[in-house]
């Protein structure tokens, strides 16, 4: 058997995704450093906003603004970030339940591992120039309450 032929190649495109009204509204609000969700048929507030109710499949169109602060309901620690990950330094992925939302969202948390815990309070760290992407929330970080540093 002759020597194996191997070659690295990149499979990729930059896709242009039309957002539709719900995702578009969420991203538009993000650009102004605001976070909105949609209210489901059972009253639950989904953040990011779901376009369709996960139980009834009906189109959701009632928007609810929620806080950019909330609580970690689960987290994992990325000790060795992958090339595709948002940070080169160790960080956490977390399920963050924002104040005013009923369903947690997945995003990154930048904090020392020792500080990470379920129930910890976090706040959004906004990117310097929000452009209407989920990454306008650069990550969440430990909440700083008034009077603190």
């Amino acid at each position: 058997m002759s020597d194996l032929l191997r070659q690295q190649f990149v499979l990729g495109y930059t896709y242009t995704r039309s957002t539709g009204p719900v995702v578009g509204r969420f991203l538009t609000e993000l650009r102004q450093r605001k976070i909105v969700g949609t209210r489901g048929d059972d009253g639950r507030v989904f953040v990011p906003p779901m376009e369709f109710d996960p139980v009834t499949a009906s189109a959701l169109d009632e928007f609810v603004e929620v806080s950019d602060r909330g609580e970690v309901v689960s987290w994992c620690w990325i000790s060795e970030p992958r090339d595709s990950h948002p940070f080169d330094e160790p960080f956490a992925w977390a399920l963050v339940l924002l104040d005013g939302a009923d369903v947690p969202m997945v995003h990154a948390v930048a904090a020392p591992e020792a500080e990470m815990h379920t129930g910890m309070r976090v706040q959004a760290r906004w990117s310097e120039e929000p452009r209407g992407y989920i990454t306008d929330i650069a990550c969440f970080e430990p909440e700083v309450t008034q009077g603190e540093g």
């Binding site: 896709y15 957002t19 995702v23 992958r82 990950h85 948002p86 969202m105 997945v106 995003h107 989920i134």
Partner: peptide
């Protein structure tokens, strides 16, 4: 593809 995939 809007909320999660862009976070990788």
């Amino acid at each position: 593809p809007y909320y999660l995939a862009p976070l990788w």
